[in-house]
């Protein structure tokens, strides 16, 4: 199903700049940001946090059967990235040979097209990752 326009727009700043939150009570980072710290609950104090965009590959796969709207991108590398600050996030690894990806490799955030409705539709941009230099 095509995600609604406001849904794609609403977290633009966070998606473009990898902005999440940090709990000042326990020091845990969250991406996407949370309104409630699951560890501290009522005692939590969440503030906005801009991630450095650097991290390491925690796990990865090569998606060869894509959902609607991603067909043109196959095969693409999908990974869970362990950000340096401690939060984990799902994102693609771009411009890489899938055979050379390994768990533990250093990556950094890049700004790419995430999704396109159709040639006349909205383009959604956001973070992906590439292997660090």
């Amino acid at each position: 199903m095509k995600p609604g326009l406001p849904l794609l727009w609403r977290r633009t700043k966070e998606r473009y700049n990898l902005i999440g939150s940090k709990c000042e009570s326990c020091g845990t980072h969250y991406m996407p940001g949370r309104a409630v710290c699951p560890k501290c609950r009522r005692k939590g104090k969440l503030v906005e946090h801009k991630f450095s965009g650097k991290g390491r590959i925690y796990s990865y796969t090569v998606v060869r059967v894509a959902p609607e709207g991603y067909e043109y991108f196959v095969p693409y590398v999908l990974a869970i990235i362990n950000l340096d600050e401690g939060a984990k996030i799902t994102g693609q690894i771009v411009d890489a040979d899938p055979d050379k990806i390994e768990v533990g490799q250093k990556v950094e955030m890049v700004f790419r097209k995430i999704h396109e409705d159709n040639p006349e539709g909205l383009i959604t941009y956001g973070f992906k990752f590439k292997l660090a230099d």
Partner: peptide, 16 residues
């Protein structure tokens, strides 16, 4: 350009 690159993504990379 890569499949997910366009003038906007290149501009963002250069601007950063």
């Amino acid at each position: 350009p890569g499949l997910d690159e366009d003038a906007a993504t290149l501009a963002v990379d250069a601007a950063r």
